Amino acid sequence: MTAFVDPSSPEGAVVEFIYHETHLLNSDRYAEWIQLLGEEFEYRMPNPQLRDDPRAAPYSDKSLLSWESIHSLRLRFDRLASEFAWADRPPAFHRRHLTAVRVEALADGETWNVSCDELVARSRTPEPPQLVSALREDVVQRVGGDLRLARRTVFLDVDRPDLAQIALLF
């Protein structure tokens, strides 16, 4: 894993890509964000598991809290842009903060594993403000000369997430 990368290197371009796509999410620019996804994009959020054995996996490898594809996300964003998104009016305030971005180039030279820690602040009346942290593991690929997000897996740092935390896009 690379902690600090040369901005002119391929890994540096991947880090800039990750910060840019997060900026688009923070700005509610979903139409632009979805253009950064590969056609086979997968968004997964494994279910946290409380275990007595500290050696046991902390997340399920079978059960997901959330699974999205580029197609389901397009439907979600189309609904948000429509006049029928009553449950999302007024929209929540949210801000994503990335730290500890790590990039690993794979052997093909066109694919990178990206890992980062993310803190999301969310606020919407009448609910109390929330801070949610997670580990985010992404796969970024070069497709036709452009970088695309191929997969995102989010590991929430919450043992029993609520619906608002699950519905957030990390």
Results as ranks from 00 to 15, higher is better:
M1C: 09
A3S: 12
F4D: 10
F4R: 13
S8I: 11
P10W: 06
P10V: 03
E11P: 02
E11V: 02
G12P: 08
G12D: 07
A13L: 14
A13Q: 15
A13F: 10
F17N: 04
I18Y: 05
Y19M: 09
Y19D: 06
Y19C: 11
H20N: 08
H20S: 10
H20Y: 14
E21D: 08
H23S: 00
H23N: 00
L24D: 04
L24F: 00
L24Y: 00
L25S: 05
D28T: 13
E32L: 08
W33S: 00
I34D: 01
I34V: 13
L36Q: 11
L36A: 12
L36P: 00
F41Q: 02
M45Q: 09
M45V: 12
P46N: 01
P48F: 02
L50D: 00
D52N: 13
D53G: 12
A56Q: 15
A56C: 10
P58Y: 05
Y59G: 07
K62P: 02
K62F: 06
S63Q: 15
L64M: 15
L65P: 02
W67C: 12
H71Q: 14
R74A: 14
L75I: 08
L75F: 09
R76F: 11
A81P: 09
S82V: 08
E83K: 12
E83D: 15
A87Q: 11
A87G: 08
R89P: 06
A92C: 04
R95Q: 07
R96G: 04
H97R: 01
L98A: 04
T99V: 08
T99P: 11
A100K: 06
A100C: 05
E104C: 02
A105C: 07
D108E: 06
D108W: 07
D108Y: 02
G109Y: 04
G109P: 09
E110V: 04
S115N: 09
S115D: 10
C116T: 03
V120K: 03
V120P: 00
R122K: 12
T125M: 10
T125G: 03
P126F: 07
E127Q: 15
Q130R: 13
Q130A: 09
V132Q: 00
V132D: 00
R136D: 02
D138P: 05
V139I: 11
R142T: 09
V143N: 02
V143P: 03
G144K: 08
G144N: 10
G145T: 04
D146E: 15
L147S: 08
R148K: 13
L149C: 05
L149S: 04
A150W: 09
T153A: 03
F155D: 01
R160T: 15
D162H: 13
L163I: 15
A164C: 06
A164R: 15
A167G: 05
A167D: 11
L169T: 15
L169E: 10
F170A: 03
F170P: 07
